[in-house]
Design a protein around this nucleic acid. Structure first.
Lengths: 339, 339
DNA sequence: AAGCTTCATGTCAACGATTACCTAGGCGAA
DNA sequence: TTCGCCTAGGTAATCGTTGACATGAAGCTT
C-alpha cells in the first residue's frame, strides 16, 4: 500500500475541523475545547499523522536542529563530543546534523555553509583552521569548541592549552627531566601552537635550554607520531621524557615505545585515551574530557538559541586534572643509576 | 548589518529576469542563453545567494540527506562508520543526520521517526533491537548495518557472526584450549546471540563440554566486562582462554588481565581496537573493520536512492580476517608445564 | 441592555523554490 | 508563405504548516 503522506488537512477533514485547529492540537496550543481536542487527537493517532518538519521549518524560518562540525568524526575525542551533544539535544527534541571538516579549511567552510543553507537553529564548531568571518553576517548562534574561531568573536569553550602544557613540563622537570621531546600537531592549528608555547614558556621559567631538535611538528595522526618517536630513539642524546600534546599522537608514541622497548622514557599525554591505564607503565595524562566541554557548549548554545539576552560573547575555560599513572613519574635513567 | 536572507527573487530583480531563470542558472539547467546565464551568475555571486534547502526540500518532497542511526555514536566502531558514511555522502553533496539510539528501542524508534518526518532521502541503521515493521509503509530506502532488522525485509550489510565465532573457538582449541570463557553482550541483540551460537556450535563440533558457568552474558560495556573477567579469575578451575565477542568488552578484559596479572590466559577479540597491538601479549583479533561495512552500506543506499531498479533486498556478508598477534596463540599453562 | 472581554475556531496569505504549462520569436521544410 | 518545432524565458500553482487577523457566541460589567 502506497501510504500517501498524511497532512494536516487530511486529519482536519476526518475530524470535521479546519487545518488550523489540528495544528493547534498537534502543537499543544491550549485554545481548543476538550472535546475538539480529543476528537482531533483520535484522528491524528488513527491516521498516524506526523508533522512535516520541512514545511514547518520553512514557515518558521529556522530548523529545530543544531549543526555540529568537527575536524574528524572518527577521532574518539570528537566522537564522544558528538555523542554528548546529541544526547542533550535529543532531550530538547532538537535534531543534530554532523559533518566532518576533514581537517581541511575548504571543506570545513563548505559544510558550515551548507548548514546555514539548512537554516540550522544553532552551530557548534570545533574549528580546524578556517577563517570564520563569513559567519558574522548570518545571525545564527554559534559556540566554538576546543579552539577559538579566527575572524569571529563568539562564545567558546576550551581549556587553557598554554598553562596546562606548561604544567606538564614542570611536572616532568620536577622528576629530574631536562631533555623533554615534544610531539605536536600542525602549528597552524591554534591548539597546537599554544601547547608548544606553553612547552617553551616552561623551559624558560625552568632555565632549560630549548632544543628545536626535540620538537616534532606536523604529527597529524598516530602513524606520524609513531615515526617521530622512532626518530627520537635514534637521537645521539636520547631525551628522557616525551610530552605528547594530543591523545591521538600518544597512541603512536606508546606503540613505538612498546615495540622499541623504550618504556623507560617518561611520557605525559595531553588527553586521556582508552588504553592509557592498561599499559605498563600506565600513561600519565592530562584528563581532557570531551564530555565536559561538549556539555557546556550545547547548554550555552541552547541559551543563545532562546535568544533572550544579548550578552557579549563569553569564553569558558575548563580546568584539567593531571592523572599520575606512572609513565610521567619515571625518573631519568642517569639519575636512577646514580642513586 | 542585518543581512536579510537573499532569495531567488532578489537575484532575479537585480539581474532583470524572472525567478525561474535564476533557478535554472543555479541548478545548471542548459536552457538559458550564455549572456543571461553570465549576468545571473554575477548577481548570484555578488549578492551571495544560497538556495534555501528547506524550501527546496518542501517542494521536492524529499531532503537530500541521509539519516544514520547507531546505538552509540561514541563507540569507536560506530564513530568510524559514521565518519566513512559522511565522507562518501559529502562527495554526493548529501548531508548527514546522525542519531544515537542509546541502546534503547523506544528512543531508537523515535529518532527514526523523526528522520522520516524530515523526509530524509535514505536511512542507514545499525539496529539495536527495535522492531522495524513500521518502516515498511514509509517508502524511504533503507540499508541495515551490522545486524538484520527485525520485522522488515531490507538490504543489510553484515558479517557472519556465527561462522566467525565458530572459527575463533576452533582456533583456540587448536592451541590446546578446552575451557574457553565467553564474554558477550545482551543476548536480545541478534549479533550477540549469533556469536554465542557460533561459540556453542564449535564446542559441539569439537566434542567439548559446554559449561554455562563459562558464559558471561549482559556484558554491555567495558566496565561490566572487566568485572566479569575478575570473576573468571576467581573460578575454582580457571579457564585457559577467553573469547571476547565485542571490541569494547575486550578493553575491559585486558584491563582486568593486566591489572590482575593474568595475561597468561589466552584471548581473542571479535573486533580490533586501538591498543590491541601495543599490549603484551598483543591481542589476537577478528578484524571487524567498520569502514568496509559502512562503505558498502552507503554505496548501496545511493543506488537505492536513485531508485531505478526495484531489486529485491539483498544481504552482503563481509568476510573477516583473524589477525594473530600472540594472545590468541598462547597455550594453556598446564600444557606449557608438561612440555 | 448596550458594551467590553474572552474563548473556540476559522480564513487567508506567506515561507522560498520548483514544476507544469505557456509565450513569443526564429528557423527550416514543404 | 505557412506550418511545425525548437529555444529562451515567463506565469501561476503548489509543497504543508503556521502567523496574523477575523468571527460569532457566550459571559460579565455597570
Amino acid at each position: 500500500m502506497t501510504s500517501r503522506k498524511v497532512r494536516l488537512s487530511d486529519v482536519a477533514d476526518a475530524a470535521g475541523t479546519s487545518a488550523k485547529t489540528v495544528s493547534r492540537v498537534a502543537n499543544g496550543d491550549h485554545r481548543v475545547s476538550i472535546e475538539t481536542r480529543q476528537r482531533v487527537q483520535d484522528e491524528i493517532d488513527r491516521l498516524g499523522y506526523q508533522v512535516d518538519l520541512m514545511a514547518r521549518s520553512l514557515r518558521k524560518g529556522v530548523d529545530e536542529t543544531v549543526g555540529v562540525v568537527v575536524p574528524t568524526i572518527g577521532d574518539p575525542f570528537f566522537a564522544t563530543m558528538v555523542e554528548e551533544i546529541e544526547g542533550i539535544a535529543l532531550q530538547q527534541s532538537l535534531s543534530v546534523f554532523v559533518a566532518g571538516g576533514s581537517r581541511n579549511p575548504g571543506i570545513e567552510q563548505m559544510v558550515v555553509e551548507r548548514m546555514l543553507a539548512r537554516r540550522v537553529a544553532g552551530l557548534i564548531i570545533a574549528p580546524f583552521m578556517t577563517d570564520f568571518a563569513f559567519l558574522a553576517s548570518a545571525n545564527t548562534p554559534v559556540v566554538f569548541l576546543d579552539r577559538h574561531a579566527s575572524g569571529l568573536d563568539a562564545d567558546v569553550v576550551l581549556v587553557d592549552d598554554f598553562a596546562e602544557s606548561k604544567r606538564v613540563v614542570h611536572h616532568l622537570a620536577s622528576h629530574g627531566h631536562s631533555r623533554i621531546a615534544l610531539i605536536v600537531d600542525d602549528l597552524a592549528v591554534e591548539t597546537s601552537r599554544r601547547r608548544r608555547e606553553g612547552y617553551r614558556a616552561a623551559h624558560h621559567e625552568l632555565g632549560l635550554v630549548i632544543d628545536e631538535g626535540l620538537e616534532f611538528h606536523e604529527c597529524i595522526n598516530a602513524n606520524v607520531a609513531e615515526q617521530r618517536t622512532w626518530e627520537i630513539f635514534s637521537q645521539p642524546e636520547v631525551p628522557t621524557a616525551i610530552f605528547s600534546s594530543r591523545a591521538e599522537t600518544s597512541l603512536g608514541v606508546v606503540k613505538a615505545q612498546h615495540h622499541g622497548n623504550r618504556t623507560d622514557i617518561a611520557l605525559v599525554s595531553f588527553g586521556d585515551f582508552e588504553a592509557a591505564d592498561i599499559l605498563s607503565p600506565a600513561v600519565t595524562v592530562l584528563d581532557h574530557d570531551p564530555r565536559v566541554l561538549a556539555r557546556i557548549a550545547i547548554e550555552r548554545l541552547i541559551v543563545l538559541m532562546r535568544g533572550d539576552e544579548a550578552r557579549p560573547p563569553r569564553e569558558t575555560i575548563v580546568p584539567l586534572h593531571l592523572i599520575k599513572r606512572g609513565s610521567g613519574e619515571l625518573i631519568p635513567h642517569a639519575m636512577a643509576v646514580s642513586v
